[in-house]
Simulated assay, not measured.
Amino acid sequence: MKRALFLLAALAYAGISSAQHIVADTVPALPPYVYCEIMANHLPSHRESGVLFDFGQKVGATKYNRITDAEGNILYFNSGIDALNYMVCLGWEFVQAYTSGEDNGLSHYLLRIAPARLTAEQRAALLTPPEREKLKPGKKR
């Protein structure tokens, strides 16, 4: 009887305890690639190059995603292909191209690069988590 009671107590204790303590990974892993989209009009205006870059950051109504040099001057490109060639020279890899808009007047070029090829500053700028809006209590979307 004592053996059966001891065996039952040992099994109950083994079921409650665990040999491993699993902790969730708190260090976020880098994605395999960071993406960029170049959008270019087929017929740029005389004042602007008509080329915009989308790196996924939030952009205000009056601020555009344009590439700047080290001094902060905006780089203007003659066409979408000119911008594509510039980005490929910086190490970005061409993935896909497609057109959209009225009469297919807008070209889209999708590029990617491995985060390991970026500087720490570039990684921090491109891999920031998205902003979240807090809903007011009692408000539903």
Rank of each mutant, 00 (worst) to 15 (best):
F6H: 09
L8H: 07
L8K: 12
A10P: 00
A10Y: 15
A12L: 15
A12Q: 07
G15L: 13
I16G: 06
I16Q: 14
S18C: 11
S18L: 02
H21I: 15
D25L: 09
D25N: 12
T26Y: 13
V27Y: 07
L30W: 13
L30E: 11
P32A: 05
E37G: 06
E37M: 12
E37H: 05
M39S: 06
M39E: 09
A40P: 04
A40S: 15
N41P: 04
N41D: 09
H42R: 11
L43D: 12
L43N: 11
S45N: 14
S49C: 11
V51F: 08
F53I: 08
D54N: 05
D54F: 01
F55P: 03
F55E: 00
G56A: 07
K58D: 07
G60A: 11
G60H: 13
T62F: 07
T62N: 09
Y64C: 04
Y64E: 02
R66H: 03
I67W: 10
G72Y: 15
G72V: 07
N73P: 02
I74C: 13
L75V: 06
Y76S: 10
Y76W: 11
N78G: 14
S79E: 14
S79T: 15
G80M: 01
G80P: 08
G80C: 02
I81G: 08
A83V: 08
A83M: 08
L84Q: 11
L84V: 09
N85L: 10
L90V: 10
L90K: 15
G91H: 04
A97D: 10
G101N: 00
D103M: 14
S107L: 03
S107D: 09
H108Q: 03
H108F: 08
L110T: 11
L111D: 01
L111H: 02
L111A: 07
R112L: 03
I113K: 05
T119W: 09
L126W: 02
L127Y: 12
L127V: 09
T128I: 04
P129T: 04
P137W: 03
G138V: 05
K139Q: 11
